[in-house]
Write a protein that binds this DNA or RNA. Sequence first.
DNA 1: GTATCTGCAAACCCTTTGCAATAAG
DNA 2: CTTATTGCAAAGGGTTTGCAGATAC
Lengths: 163, 163
Amino acid sequence: MAEKASVFPFQKASKNDPDLQREMDSFRSFLRSKTHRVTRERESIAEAVLLNRGHFDVDELFLALKGRVGVSKASIYRTIPILIEAGILAAVYLEDGHMHYERVFGRDHHSHLRCTSCGRIFEFSVPELPVLEKRIAEQQDFKSEGHKFEIWGLCAKCLRSDR
Amino acid sequence: MAEKASVFPFQKASKNDPDLQREMDSFRSFLRSKTHRVTRERESIAEAVLLNRGHFDVDELFLALKGRVGVSKASIYRTIPILIEAGILAAVYLEDGHMHYERVFGRDHHSHLRCTSCGRIFEFSVPELPVLEKRIAEQQDFKSEGHKFEIWGLCAKCLRSDR
DNA sequence: GTATCTGCAAACCCTTTGCAATAAG
DNA sequence: CTTATTGCAAAGGGTTTGCAGATAC
């Protein structure tokens, strides 16, 4: 169980996509605004992340970049906090011992369903959760900054094949 | 930030507590039922865990045991899965890179508030969550096995001292 | 030109494991 | 006695870091 889902989350590329161009420009502006340098490596990493539509870990990002430009893992690890600060990337804490990430799309907060058999992640959003977060924080005299809701179990596919 | 909370979660001991004795006995029975041996080390670890009222990690457990009997970390790591199997201990996945554990008290499911400044964990339970879990799983054609809800932010104490 | 960034390899931290000595049954 | 368990120290993964050379500005 828990072998990596075969669907590779990095797309081959539509580098001419105007949306991508716009987001890359905004990332470059972000870098300049922080007096960070706009390097080939940072651009490659950002592009790979922006073209991504799923969840991934550092290894997968590294492999995806290998085919493109070639960026060391050290640079990936050093760039990730910048991408998070830039609002492009979010850390996803899954219960398997190492970090996962996902591209941030707009402001929508979503939660995850994790299949304990194939490891795939599905997303959903529940409008009640932010409300719940606020209510509980108030009750407990806490200033909340965020929440996480995860459900694990068996996805439809694994349910069928598991017996 | 994130220095360890000073409240040490292991109590000095009330080894004569009849509840503790009963739970230790049941742990010993569990060991025998699995043809595992009842060793001094396993008893020490189980006792420390049973006397615990909060969340802890392996290091904290190791330090707590140092003063008592002295058990190697290897043995702690090897005993933890047994304690989990025995239903005494549960793994808690916090977003700080390593494993935490908590003693299991009965069947009550609870969630965590985590202070991002001092690292302390507070508990709460919301009856809505299991309902939500079921509802979402149904909607997504998923067989749910469990959920996790965590809120992070600043606890009352850190809110006051942080400014 | 100069300071930042990169790749490499070593260091780190938490966790797991091989092995010889020890102890439970 | 026999086999599981222990402690130690070494090995393993994922992540971070020091440093010399490369590169953005």
